[in-house]
Amino acid sequence: MNTHATPRIAIVGAGPGGLTCARILQKHGISATVYDRDSSPDARNQGGTLDLHDDGQIALREAGLLDQFFALARPEGQEMRQMTPSGEIINHHVPAEGELVKPEIDRGVLRDLLLNSLQPGTVQWGRGLDHVSGPADGPRLLHFTDGTIIETDLVIGADGAFSRVRPALSPAVPGYTGVSFLEAWFDDVDARHPDIADLVGQGSAAAGDGERGMFAQRNGGDHIRVYLIRRVPAGWIADSGLTIDDTAAIRARLLEEYATWSPALRRLISDNDGRYVDRPIYALPVPTTWDSNPALTLLGDAAHLMPPLGVGVNYAMLDAAELALAITASDTIADAIRAYEATMLARANETAKLLEGGAEQLMGAQVPDFSEPIPS
């Protein structure tokens, strides 16, 4: 920043986007504090694996972490098998030696890489945000659920789909896409589930029949996660008189829905370890935009929640890099936000339009070719 006073920067959300932003700011000598509602870094499972293509890799390069990322990533995870419901493989992408277009990394591993790169005390845990107040031109006030209030010159909302920062900028709220994922876990797969390990391979396997889909993905640590993709009401479990803990009843319903699928693929429903995880898919309206605010902005899913087709974390990290670099290069925070949002909103809304209704593709007989990067 080319200013005499050091701005107080608050980043809400310690996901990949928020942490990337904090890291790049610190790399340029600018302090930021990250607030997260989780009680600690280990308070909950961070989710499955993700691929980082050019956008995410650009951000890690700016963060000075690209070599460390490649040391942790799994290039073999770029393998992709597209299958029919009968189990026939109709497309098989095997990554070439040295291919690093979109290597896989577990979300928890990526988060640890970013966390460990930050100055001690950067992240404050157990700080759930309730709302943001204060004049549009700042300073802004962060009201936390524990009753504390913090004054800051810039609020960066990196707090995901149901952001508590977004309402201070935009009335947009995520809407249910009509498609829901039901997640199943398989542990110690090479020893305990060798047939499933062989079916999925080192990367991912997907199939769809037009009414329902299935996406299986190998994670690090000998785990596989399977996503059963269906067009159902968001509250279908409760509407059926069930709870998410009614594993046997949910499994029986799924097996009936997938009755015509091959026995090998149906084992991805019947043999999972533990209960299912319900993940209804939401997206923000297209386009989502707002008038630039000199003391508040958004990045990642808080700004442009889209169907899960490969851009979420990558765009969040690219947003973070572009915002941090704009702050370092601009005379004022307001100038930085205007420059950042001009690029980010145009890119996000163009991609969101391309992906609108994209969750439906995951159930199609012609499964999307995940070996190709999503257009950006």
Rank of each mutant, 00 (worst) to 15 (best):
S170A: 10
D112F: 03
A168W: 00
A205H: 02
G364L: 10
T145S: 03
L354R: 15
S330G: 07
A96N: 10
H4N: 14
R192W: 01
P7Y: 13
A346H: 14
Y258F: 15
L242Y: 13
D130L: 00
R61G: 14
L100V: 10
R267Q: 12
N314W: 05
R212I: 07
T343L: 13
N45G: 13
R192V: 10
E151D: 04
T243R: 12
L60D: 01
N2Y: 10
K353L: 13
K353M: 09
G128V: 01
D331A: 15
L228V: 14
L110T: 03
V367F: 12
Q217R: 12
D190Q: 14
P308V: 01
W261I: 05
A252P: 04
L254R: 09
G274P: 09
A326S: 15
A172C: 05
A96T: 10
T177A: 08
G121I: 05
G312D: 08
L118D: 02
G29K: 00
N293F: 03
L265E: 08
T6V: 12
D188G: 14
P120K: 04
L115I: 07
E341M: 04
A197V: 10
A22L: 01
T152F: 00
D106P: 11
A303F: 13
L362N: 07
I229R: 09
Y227T: 08
L255D: 12
T152W: 00
G300L: 06
N116W: 09
V12L: 03
A342I: 04
L113D: 03
D36F: 01
G208W: 07
P85G: 01
P75W: 07
T84V: 04
S133R: 00
T351S: 11
R127L: 02
T288E: 10
D331V: 09
V173T: 04
G138V: 00
A172T: 06
Y315C: 05
T288K: 11
L100E: 06
T260N: 12
V367T: 07
P41L: 06
E99N: 13
R111L: 05
S204P: 03
L72M: 15
I9N: 00
N272H: 14
P139Q: 09
T297G: 10
H53Q: 13
A238Q: 11
D190L: 11
